[in-house]
């Protein structure tokens, strides 16, 4: 395509990265300055409420929309001008599948399989059966869930180096969802596949994510190792009488009706919780990922 690629930027080692990303739709700003880079082989869970801008961010990261400002890179290439080789190394499953409706699932997979050097036809056939896709029905006649499952099979069978899944969980029943998670986890751990996985169902991410990013109102509230979300942050509760002692630095701060305070706090560099946590009556509660997200996104 373009022989004069821009010189390598800072993070060419990252299979997928964005810097200073901004984007607006007529009804307002969706992305308000996002910086994010995935390490090779990592599984990044992107969490956000409906409408937080997850799909817009993903589409901009992959060069499927031109952002108002900022830069997106895929395998070090500008996302908007990726060459065909780069495209063959990535697989993306959108929330709304755009399958070719006049083909059957079997025909589609046979067709697209020819474009991928690493196509795993055995996996495709086997998973089609396990995920109960009618193989000979036109895709246009499948339910949206079935079509998304076909898309997931297509993405996985191409054995991508970079796998991007936008809300894949909705289309799958619990057994198939577990299978998807297993597949994604093993590929990341063993083949070094880099994965970006967006969802508002956080329990899926707790199994497989190595890193977590919280997107809220167009900004990243938090981006850290998945284990850190549980070990580095906690909720500090202070009774009303002590609320004046609350630390100034907190990710979130909520005053309850009785005057008591809940804060999300972070350990300092020596691993200690803020001073106020040692007051009598103060309480520090460990938080699961979902609780942490609800606390900081509220």
């Amino acid at each position: 395509m373009n022989a004069q690629l821009a010189p390598a930027a800072v993070d060419t080692t990252s299979p997928l990265s964005v810097a200073g990303l901004r984007h607006s739709y007529p009804d307002g700003e969706v992305l308000r300055g996002v910086d994010l880079a995935l390490a090779p082989g990592s599984v990044l869970g992107l969490i956000g409420r409906n409408g937080a801008g997850k799909s817009t961010l993903i589409r901009a990261m992959l060069g499927l929309l031109e952002p108002a400002a900022g830069e997106a890179r895929v395998f070090g290439q500008p996302a908007l001008r990726m060459d065909d080789q780069a495209k063959a190394r990535l697989a993306y499953v959108p929330q709304q599948p755009e399958a070719l409706g006049w083909l059957t699932a079997t025909q589609l997979l046979d067709y697209v399989g020819r474009f991928y050097p690493g196509w795993d036809a055995r996996f495709a056939g086997k998973t089609l059966e396990r995920w109960k896709i009618p193989p000979n029905k036109l895709l246009a006649k499948l339910s949206p869930g079935e079509r998304q499952r076909v898309d997931l099979i297509r993405a996985l069978a191409s054995q991508p180096e970079l796998l991007v899944l936008d809300e894949p969980a909705a289309a799958l029943d619990p057994v198939a969802r577990r299978e998807l998670l297993r597949e994604v986890a093993l590929r990341a751990g063993e083949s070094g596949t880099t994965v970006l996985f967006s969802t508002h169902i956080v329990s899926d991410l707790e199994r497989i994510a190595s890193d977590i990013a919280f997107l809220h109102e167009g900004k990243l509230l938090l981006h850290c190792a998945a284990d850190d979300t549980k070990e580095r942050f906690a909720r500090l509760w202070l009774p009303a009488a002590m609320s004046a002692a609350a630390p100034a630095a907190a990710l979130s701060r909520r005053r309850h009706e009785d005057g008591s305070l809940s804060l999300v706090v972070e350990r300092d560099e020596r691993g200690q919780w803020p001073e106020a946590s040692r007051l009598t009556g103060a309480r520090v509660d460990a938080l699961g990922l979902e609780d942490l997200f609800v606390e900081v996104a509220e």
């Binding site: 297993r182 986890a185 093993l186």
Partner: peptide, 10 residues
């Protein structure tokens, strides 16, 4: 990792 569908790195 496969049995529990968790990340092998974990």
């Amino acid at each position: 990792a496969a049995f529990h569908a968790i990340n092998p790195m974990t």
